[in-house]
Nucleic acid binder design. Structure first.
Lengths: 203, 203
DNA sequence: TTAAAAAGTCACCCAAAGGTGACCATAAAA
DNA sequence: TTTTATGGTCACCTTTGGGTGACTTTTTAA
């Protein structure tokens, strides 16, 4: 029978993975200690070694299970206005997504703080995803000016990342804008729209 | 006599403060352990407790000794063209400054990772400095649109922060732009100029 | 129903890290 | 030159965290 039993390896593994996520969100990557993970999962730490080989492997498995980029999809008609409205929408969505997804924030922060293969893979996946946008939407419209568009979007994406990371500490006011305030966030979105519009108009 | 002697409290304090800076640059804030600080300074850790009260106070004193914003100065004529060229130059300078100043990068990262009063003070000082620019240059030119300019510059500043933080890990390619490559950095600067110009033209 | 395999627990070890009392050494004052 | 204050060292304790061998309990298959 494969009916779930009290003792269940797969379920325990999942609980350990969940514990990693929970601790990551609440304490950041510096809070990922074996003892704490086991305690959070309500299991003995020995199981971490038995099932994953160690904390590192457990954490890597957690990271690899995350799929932050599946939310981006290219509907037909994305290229309508040279991709302006599509790109705008995508940047806005990304802004909100990062704001809400604390685990993602912590992983970004971790990636800025330490070298780790599985985190590198995460940013690589992000790069690959970005290339798709460039290739399918930007390049056809901007042609030889694609490179300049890259630089601009690098600033914009990096900017909305940083603002969201910043939001969760220190009072969250950046350049006089309160990143946690709803109307201020709208102002940021308007700024993104404005900058993209100008780029499409004048680049 | 106050001629420096072999045994010198002030000099030892300074060595400990320097050790903090050195470790911060090389290992980040997670590398700031009492034993390592003392070893780096070539002194006994007991002195950290004697002279500063503990690692936390030592670190705070290090942070408070930093003055990252003295480089910004308002020369006469900053308002010439509504502040466009001044602002451009300032953002460019900031981009390069953050790139070069590893200690600053690590402190920014630290501020994104943990709550700490002395780090909050650092960002407050930064905010205050930004307000000066707004008040003296932006507000006079943009008037009721100052708020929108705030949002735009928040994105730009946050963007160049993040890009520079990103530069030191993970291969440093962001949106297809290699932040460590000289010509790519020029591209970023051109993008900053372009976005500011468009803002002055069309906001 | 019993034996073996697997799930899970516990006690323990070791290393790293924080923190401190007792001591030594030197410079300046007596 | 002896005392005294203080800069500086050392040994030691404690806590925290990583890691594992030996054991118990449950499941599953013979």
């Amino acid at each position: 029978m494969d009916q779930p039993t009290i003792r269940n390896k797969e379920k325990s593994k999942q609980r350990l993975l969940d514990a990693v996520g929970k601790l990551l969100k609440s304490k950041g990557f510096t809070g990922l200690k074996v003892n704490d993970i086991a305690a959070t999962a309500g299991l003995d730490k020995k199981l971490i070694y038995k099932y994953f080989g160690g904390t590192d492997q457990l954490i890597d498995e957690y990271i690899q299970a995350q799929d932050f980029w599946s939310n981006v999809d290219y509907r037909e008609g994305s290229e309508a206005d040279g991709g302006l409205s599509f790109t705008k929408e995508m940047f806005h969505a990304q802004f909100d997504y990062v704001y809400k997804n604390k685990a993602f924030q912590k992983l970004i922060l971790w990636g800025l703080s330490e070298q780790r293969k599985s985190l590198k893979q995460l940013t690589d996946a992000q790069e690959a995803n970005g290339e798709l946008l460039i290739e399918k939407v930007i390049e056809p419209h901007f042609g030889s000016k694609t490179r300049q568009f890259r630089a601009i979007s690098a600033i914009l994406i990096a900017g909305l990342y940083h603002l969201n990371l910043f939001a969760n500490v220190n009072g969250s006011v950046f350049c006089g804008i309160d990143i946690k305030n709803k109307t201020d966030r709208e102002e940021i979105k308007k700024a993104i729209s404005f900058l993209l519009e100008q780029t499409y108009k004048a680049l």
